[in-house]
Write a protein that binds this DNA or RNA. Structure first.
Lengths: 190, 190
DNA sequence: TGGATAATAGTACGAGCGTTCGCAATTCTT
DNA sequence: AAGAATTGCGAACGCTCGTACTATTATCCA
């Protein structure tokens, strides 16, 4: 299916230039197709963007979420989630992360794309939250652990990784994310 | 000076729509001026963007940095820096923060604007780093404190604040940033 | 083999962008 | 008061964008 191939390249372009920077003309060039040929596969540019977001979400789930839930519930699963997340972002240092760039692009731009992005990021944070709760229920973390706070700080470590490595290009950011996570867990450990 | 008034409005627009979203036509509308009238004050759009970035930096310094260095060096100063920083970002939840949106917009777009942004953010991180070093020298923090790691995590807390409050619109993010900072300091305290 | 069906190309349009240029109005200088 | 310099306006240019419409080519089924 040509459509799938187009979406694949579109995801690549959107990762680099942002969802708003994704343009049909450039996409057609990369595909060696005409603009109208590419356009015909999607009803509108917004539809194309939405499909790209959904594709990214599927990739993220497949690479980070699903393999992690195979780990034993509680702290090991939470650790796996963070480790795979870091690994994913460390690859995206070269290409860009749509969750993060999308969060900035659509923080004040209403519409279906923003809604799609918000619901996906919220779903991921929800998964982390459930996992953190289970970790306290299993007795891996202290009983009075504030799971929301834990997820908040995990997200901060990832955002800082993206910022320092991709924008400022500071080496060693990867290790800093891991060190931060270990310190975080050490604080909440039972 | 009309130029200063234009820059003021331009900063507002760039905060909302990003530096790349800043357009001369919209700016002219907001100023009740013609496009060419606005344009004449700057040699090019890029110059306008650069001036906006510099203006933002001056505001940031004035509001966050300068008042903080009046505090006693070491931990009190570091605390003041973070507190004022949080306060500033909490205001920017409504308007947007150019350091953060700029980091995403220009992480892969070479040119003078990226360079300006990088040098400014690096300067701010440098100031935090020096302050953290002084805090260990003063004996406020443990002697083996990794200042880079500390700054990294502080930055993460701020990024998470911006993300959760402005994009996801989760209430209580402000408190989470403060709680995270306190836990951070508690870890590194002498 | 021929005719419906889908996929791609080509062209054109209208809008918005940054930018240029010439002209009017205002302000400053002497 | 006259001339120079600044400041703003309006129209136009060339470009790129998303999109619509029409043809052409390929595919597949009877």
């Amino acid at each position: 299916m040509t459509r799938a191939a187009i979406l694949d390249v579109a995801l690549d372009l959107a990762s680099r230039d942002g969802l708003e920077g994704l343009t049909i003309g450039l996409l057609a060039d990369r595909m060696n197709m005409s603009k109208s040929g590419v356009f015909a596969h999607f009803g509108s540019r917004e539809d194309l963007q939405l499909e790209v977001v959904k594709l990214y979400h599927r990739r993220f789930e497949q690479e980070v979420f699903y393999p992690s839930v195979k780990e034993p519930r509680g702290l090991p699963r939470l650790r796996a989630m963070f480790a795979r997340w870091v690994k994913r972002v460390s690859v995206e240092i070269a290409s860009g992360c749509i969750y993060i760039s999308g969060a900035v692009e659509y923080d004040d731009r209403p519409g279906p794309i923003r809604e799609e992005l918000v619901s996906m990021v919220a779903a991921w944070q929800g998964a982390l939250l459930r996992c953190a709760h289970q970790a306290t229920e299993c007795g891996h973390l202290k009983a009075d652990t504030d799971a929301q706070q834990l997820v908040y700080e995990m997200y901060g470590l990832i955002l800082a990784l993206h910022h320092d490595a991709r924008f400022l290009r500071i080496p060693g950011s990867l290790e800093r994310a891991s060190v931060g996570f270990e310190r975080l867990i050490e604080n909440y450990k039972a």
